[in-house]
Design a protein around this nucleic acid. Structure first.
Lengths: 192, 192
DNA sequence: CGCGGGTTTGATGATGCTCAAGCCCGGTGG
DNA sequence: CCACCGGGCTTGAGCATCATCAAACCCGCG
C-alpha cells in the first residue's frame, strides 16, 4: 500500500532502503470513515496527510453557514491546513472524509525531525509545495476570469474522477456557486 | 541593499559569511523601470525575483483582454510564475513593474545548483513556498465567501501600503471586479 | 492649452443567489 | 411488500450583486 507513497517520492528524489524504512517509521497509517474529521475548525493543525486511497476534502464554513471547499484530495495527494500548521494558530478550516479512506499521517514536529535526518526530503516537500502553489494559482485565475459554466467544464476535463465520485453539492461548493445554480448550469449543458 | 534579503533568509535559517557571499554570487541585481516586463505571456519563465524596492505585479490576460492580477510583490517579497518555472511550459502570465523597482534575480537552474551547495536553503525556500501557498489559499477563500465590498475592506486592512500606492484599476483587477464597480463600492463606503 | 489616462456616474442587463416547492430514490420499519 | 421518511437534486419566481457601455469629469503633463 505504501508503495504508492514511495513511488510518489521517488519521482523526485532517490531513497535507500534504510531511508525508506526510517521514513515510514515517522508516519502512521490510519483508516478514516466517511464524514470523520481529520481536522476541525478551532483546533490547531498538527498533521499532514498523504492519501493512500479514498477521498478527503478541506473546506471552510462562512458566517452564514455555507461550506466552501478549498481542496479535494484523492489517492496520491497531500492534504493539510497549511496556514494553521505553519503559524500554529487555530484553524478556520475543516478536513473530513467523503468516503472511507486510508491515509498516512505525520506530525509537523516529526516532519521537522525527519527532514533533519533525511535532508533530500526537503527537496521533495519543496517541490510538492511548489506544485500545490502552482495549482491553486491557476484555480484562482479560473475563478477570477471564467463564469461558472466554464469552471464546471474545466473541472470535468481536469478531474473527471472527482466529478464522478463527489456529490454535486460538494462540486458546487468547490466551484463557488450554489447547488441550485450548478443544477441549472448542468441543465443548460445537456440541452446542447 | 541586499541586507533586506539576508534578513529575510536569516529569519528562517543561519548562514555563514562565506555562504552569504556564495549565495549572492548566484543572484544578479536589476533595476526595472515602470511598465517594464520581467516575464511576458508565451515565454518560458526562467527566473525567480526577490523585490528589494518598488512594486511588481503578476497578472493574466483573459480572452476578452481583461487583466486579472494574481499577486502584487512589494519590498521583501518573492515573485515568479510558479506554474511555468516548474513545468518549463510557456507562461500564461505577465510580470511587470508598477513603479521603478530593484530586484534580485536567480535562474531556476542556478537555484537548483545553489541548493546543492547550500542545502539549508532548501528549508528556506520550502518555508517561503509554504507561506505563499497558505496566503493564496486564504485569498481564494475570501473570493469564494465574501462579496466585493468585504474583500476590498480586507485588502485595505491587510495591505494598506498596496492600496495606497497602486492605481484603483489594478486593485479592482486583483479583487476580481471592474474598476467601475470598485468606484461604486468606494462611494458606498465613504457615505458611512 | 489640449490631450490622455484614470476615475466617476447612470441606465440597463447578465450572472448567480434566495426561498419555497416538488421530485427522485435508496433505506427503514411495519 | 408497501409506506414513509430523508437527503440530494431540480425547477421557478423574484432579487442582489456585479458587468457593460457610454458619457462626463478630473488632473497631471507635454
Amino acid at each position: 500500500m505504501s508503495q504508492v507513497f514511495f513511488d510518489n517520492i521517488q519521482q523526485h528524489i532517490h531513497l535507500s532502503e534504510e531511508e525508506k524504512e526510517l521514513l515510514l517509521s515517522y508516519f502512521k497509517t490510519k483508516k478514516i470513515r466517511k464524514r470523520q474529521f481529520l481536522l476541525e475548525e478551532g483546533d490547531v493543525c498538527k498533521h499532514s496527510a498523504f492519501v493512500l486511497s479514498g477521498c478527503l476534502r478541506c473546506y471552510f464554513i462562512d458566517e452564514n453557514g455555507f461550506e466552501h471547499i478549498l481542496q479535494f484530495a484523492v489517492e496520491d495527494w497531500w492534504i493539510t491546513d497549511m496556514m494553521s500548521i505553519i503559524t500554529q494558530n487555530p484553524s478556520r478550516l475543516n478536513i473530513d472524509a467523503l468516503e472511507e479512506s486510508e491515509i498516512l499521517l505525520i506530525k509537523r514536529e516529526d516532519q521537522t525531525e525527519l527532514l533533519e535526518k533525511i535532508p533530500q526530503l526537503e527537496k521533495y516537500f519543496r517541490i510538492k509545495t511548489e506544485s500545490g502553489l502552482a495549482h491553486i494559482q491557476s484555480r484562482l485565475l479560473e475563478n477570477l476570469s471564467l463564469p461558472a459554466k466554464e469552471r464546471y467544464l474545466n473541472l470535468m476535463k481536469k478531474y473527471p474522477r472527482i466529478v464522478e465520485k463527489v456529490p454535486q453539492k460538494q462540486i458546487a461548493s468547490y466551484l463557488g456557486i450554489t447547488p441550485e445554480f450548478l443544477s441549472k448550469v448542468r441543465k443548460e449543458l445537456v440541452k446542447n
